[in-house]
Simulated scan of single mutants.
Amino acid sequence: MPEKKGKSPHHGSGAPWRNFYGRLKGKHLRPSQKTYLDEDLAALSPGPVDWDANPERRNLDLKALFGDRPLWLEIGFGGGEHLVHQAEQNREAGFIGCEPYINGVAMLLGKIRAAKCDNIRIHPGDVRDLFDVLPDASVAKAFLLYPDPWPKKRHHRRRFVTAEHMEPLARVMRPGAIFRVATDIPDYVRQTLETVPKHGFKWLCEGPEDWRQPWDDWISTRYEQKALREGRVPHYLTFQRD
């Protein structure tokens, strides 16, 4: 992916001291996608996340959003196919998806319209800003699926599996919560297995099949299909919050 550096995405509404690395927008949006963004995105906001709307960093009212349903979180949902699949299969849960790439947000909105899911909310920006306003121990399950690999060694600090991200993730996940990571990059597997357990997570693995085989409720994403076409091997890692 082309690299872009700037402040947290979406009109300077993120934390002013956080640099953001990654794509915010592709070459073009189809007219239908622009319609989804104009008509649907605001109504699917989880609440005031951005700093201009919530400078005091008040916690989101999850009960108002989802009632007593457990909260599941997808960090970087890409085109949204996995998020919608999970939401359809788990109507008893409420979902928040984070994705700064606005083209991916538009794709998800189209899928939500088609599936008529009413249990998804979207933060179109940096997940670190969402962590600021999630209550402690509020997340029952989290997904990190084919994150940006940042392959160059000097860029490894930008990966999600660093203390900057894992410390707030650990804070918002409840004891016993499940954290799933899928990646096709061996060095990302290495860093994940080195870093995640240091932040209060146990790797649930009894043998090779536990990371070689996808989860029973898995739906293969466009990123996984690309990895398979290019001969890379997916890894499926499951962790549990202490």
Rank of each mutant, 00 (worst) to 15 (best):
K7G: 15
S13G: 14
A15L: 14
N19F: 13
L24D: 00
L24W: 00
G26S: 04
Q33I: 07
T35E: 15
L44H: 04
W51N: 15
W51Q: 09
P55M: 08
E56S: 14
R57F: 05
R57C: 14
R58F: 09
N59S: 14
A64I: 10
A64Y: 05
W72H: 14
G76P: 06
G79N: 09
G79H: 11
G80L: 05
E81R: 05
V84Q: 03
F95W: 04
I96A: 07
E99S: 01
I102V: 15
L108P: 02
L109T: 01
I112V: 12
R113N: 10
A114D: 09
C117M: 07
C117F: 02
L130A: 04
V133S: 00
A140T: 06
F143N: 08
Y146L: 11
H155C: 07
H156Y: 13
M166W: 10
E167Q: 11
M173T: 04
G176F: 10
A182W: 10
T183I: 08
I185M: 08
P186W: 01
P186G: 10
D187H: 03
Y188R: 02
V189K: 06
Q191A: 00
E194L: 14
G200M: 01
W203D: 11
E206F: 10
Q213G: 10
D216L: 15
D217L: 13
K226N: 11
G231R: 03
P234R: 04
T238H: 08
